[in-house]
Design a protein around this nucleic acid. Structure first.
Lengths: 212, 212
DNA sequence: GACAAACACGAGCGGTCGCTCGCATTCTTG
DNA sequence: CAAGAATGCGAGCGACCGCTCGTGTTTGTC
């Protein structure tokens, strides 16, 4: 009990090591993005990073740990995003504006980190990553439930949960369309996502304000 | 040039062979459904079908051909479904009813053939299957465009195409939610898909009839 | 029954992939 | 500088997978 943890043996990393880790994670993101998790070979990731296979395994015990570390960093960064994207529940903000800003922030995050979509969407991801995905998914649904719950006072909890799942599903489907286009067409699809969500939620939240 | 085709050598199949082919396709559907295409091993498919690996390759030249034959049969069967699901454009039918019946038929098909979703959704499917998927996707979008075009007279062709893509995307997202639930909850999600589509399309198709 | 074609088997070939290990090199520390 | 730890290398091991091939069995035809 004198140690901070019994399985923790903090290898003293040098600055070089931290740089290699960053290189490897970036290379893994690149390869995962283009070929998916399963098809991505560790040798290809090492080659992309400009190191040997042995060097990769100096810093990551196996391929899964590499993907998990990558996913953890992405999720951590996303939590900062959706922490700001989904928290403001001031009853004064109209529905359109709330949905608009939330969608914009999520789209911005996903376009800046396309790996996230690749890692979280593949049916080939191993157990631990799928768990992380489910956990993030549940967290997001919970947040949306919180927002909807205060907007749909007359609905049961099961209805709120269902509505939250539908909202997230619609967003994901729209994200796929957004990532498949560029420029003006991409912007048009972003607007479509907002329209779908607004028209879907408007009748549910009762008559609050601002639908004209 | 005396043959009907230079690469066609019609092996005379016996009744036993046809039975084996059906067994193998069914086994492949089972294995693809549970593990996905890439992770499914041909040996596992043969084992599931109760035959040896060599027997499998008596009827299919390779793993991809097996998946393609399976996909072709599914697409052929689906075309009978959506041929009936998307054709009626009688201007008399209200929007709600048209969407309701179309969604019901597609959901029925997809719940009866879960392999279809697995084969068409995996990012791991090889080139030919992805092509078949894209072709089906394009066909479906074209059909929806046809329906929308006559309903949205004031919109440009790019807008109609975009709207069709959004409709199909919303349906796919809803399908995932529907397949993840059972019984009454599943039925509730089916209704949600219809609501999303109806509310999304209602303002677009101008004031026709029946929104009350 | 005789003969050929279709069917069935399963050990194993060639190849890839995740990962290891022995050794060389570079950094830190005193 | 010396010593040890951290980093770096890459040939190759073991396992798995798609697929083959030599051989044996069943079916259709005369």
């Amino acid at each position: 009990m004198s140690e901070t943890s019994d399985k923790e043996q903090p290898r003293r990393r040098q600055a070089r090591g931290e740089r290699r880790i960053a290189q490897l994670l970036q290379a893994a993101a690149q390869v995962f993005c283009t070929t998916g998790y399963t098809a991505a070979s560790t040798n290809a990731i090492a080659r992309e990073a400009g190191v040997s296979p042995g060097t990769l395994y100096q810093f990551f015990p196996n391929k899964e740990a590499l993907a998990i570390e990558l996913g953890d960093r992405l999720i951590h960064e996303m939590q900062e995003t959706y922490g700001e994207a989904l928290t403001p529940v001031e009853p004064a903000t109209p529905l359109e504006e709330a949905i608009g800003t939330a969608v914009d922030r999520f789209i911005a995050f996903n376009t800046e980190h396309p790996v996230f979509f690749a890692l979280m969407h593949g049916p080939d991801v191993p157990g631990r990553i799928a768990e992380a995905h489910d956990q993030l998914h549940a967290t997001l649904v919970g947040r949306i439930e919180g927002l909807l719950g205060s907007l749909m006072p007359g609905a049961g909890p099961a209805d709120v949960t269902r509505t939250a799942h539908v909202c997230l599903g619609v967003y994901k489907a729209g994200l796929e369309l957004v990532l498949a286009h560029e420029g003006a067409e991409r912007a048009a699809y972003v607007q479509e996502i907002k329209d779908v969500l607004i028209r879907y939620l408007e009748p549910l939240v009762g008559d609050r304000l601002g639908h004209g």
